[in-house]
């Protein structure tokens, strides 16, 4: 053994380890009792109180998660051109900043490097920029003012960005996908059905009486295929519905109303098509039901 408990050695170790055998206890740092004021021990006195605060926070947090389920929209579809992008809320100030003309386009280096670089750089290096001994914020007017200004501008940018998003939702008449989905699930639950699955693609419904020459002529005249597609399956990305199985969703009267007066992004066809043509068309559309 390299280091026996030989009392002649200057340093005595525990066994053959490098832990020195202690003779006295004075190597222990001072505990809280040697500090002045009403200090208290971390364990157990303070930790117990801290745990109580922690429990209150945890209960509040769990109530939030139960009351407000996490949002989930529809599966990512890169061809979806109508989706309004929305970063998480704590990136909104940066997102909004980059929309201003003086930090975008040819000035974009200023927007992505300059402004955030100076802001985050000075925040990172704050102790080396504000080197005075004074700690009270009201005696440090420059540091305090700069911080308050940054806070106000972050708040302002976030608010503008959020209002802009809400406005965009309104003018495009869009319901955010996770809300739409939740709504549909709730409706399905209320009527006692299975909630609609967003993962399984809908089964393809074949067209009924697909070779009807009269209908084909009318459709070519009205240019239905331009939007609903040559296969009449619509464009999911642009929220243009498929006409396959449309008879399951709408009856003839509703179809006539939509074709005659339009709906959402679809134009009215009362000037393009005659009443008989619309009648022929909607009779055919109403027949588009899934095979039983």
């Amino acid at each position: 053994m390299a280091h026996g408990n030989n009392s002649n050695e200057k340093v005595v170790y525990v066994g053959d380890s490098r832990v020195r055998k202690r003779e006295t206890v004075n190597s222990i740092p001072p505990d809280y009792t040697s500090f002045p004021g009403r200090s208290e021990a971390f364990i157990p006195n303070f930790l117990l109180k801290e745990w109580m605060v922690g429990c209150v926070v945890l209960v509040g947090f769990l109530v939030l998660t139960i009351a407000e389920p996490p949002p989930l929209g529809y599966p990512a579809d890169p061809t979806n051109s109508a989706f309004i992008p929305m970063p998480d809320w704590y990136f909104l100030f940066l997102y909004q900043l980059l929309k201003y003309p003086w930090v975008s386009g040819s000035y974009v280096p200023l927007g992505v490097m300059g402004v955030p670089g100076v802001a985050f750089g000075s925040l990172l290096l704050a102790p080396f920029l504000d080197t005075g001994k004074e700690r009270r914020f009201y005696r440090r007017p420059i540091a305090t003012t700069l911080m308050l200004l940054s806070l106000v501008s972050c708040y302002y940018l976030t608010k503008v960005s959020w209002d802009h998003y809400q406005h965009e939702l309104e003018i495009t008449n869009t319901v955010p996908e996770h809300i739409e989905r939740e709504e549909k699930a709730r409706e399905a639950a209320a009527s006692g059905e299975e909630p609609p699955s967003a993962t399984k693609p809908k089964e393809d419904v074949a067209l009924v009486d697909a070779d009807n020459a009269g209908v084909k002529t009318i459709m070519e005249k009205a240019k239905c295929m331009t939007c609903h597609g040559t296969d009449l399956k619509g464009q999911a990305g642009a929220k243009i519905p498929s006409l396959h199985g449309v008879g399951d969703l709408l009856d003839k009267a509703q179809l006539t109303e939509i074709v005659t007066n339009g709906k959402g992004g679809m134009p009215a066809f009362k000037d393009t098509l005659s009443a008989e043509e619309i009648d022929t068309l909607t009779t055919w559309l109403a027949k588009q039901k899934a095979a039983q």
């Binding site: 949002p71 989930l72 929209g73 529809y74 599966p75 990512a76 579809d77 890169p78 979806n80 989706f83 309004i84 992008p85 929305m86 970063p87 998480d88 704590y90 990136f91 940066l94 997102y95 980059l98 974009v108 280096p109 927007g111 992505v112 490097m113 955010p176 996908e177 996770h178």
Partner: peptide
């Protein structure tokens, strides 16, 4: 926060990441 936002792979996740990467792309 940024990397976790993509993981559910819904439209919101996908397009937010696309925008984020576009912003990163514009760094000189």
């Amino acid at each position: 926060g940024f990397t976790g936002y993509l993981l559910p792979w819904d439209n919101k996740a996908y397009f937010a990441t696309k925008v984020g990467i576009q912003i990163a792309d514009s760094v000189p």
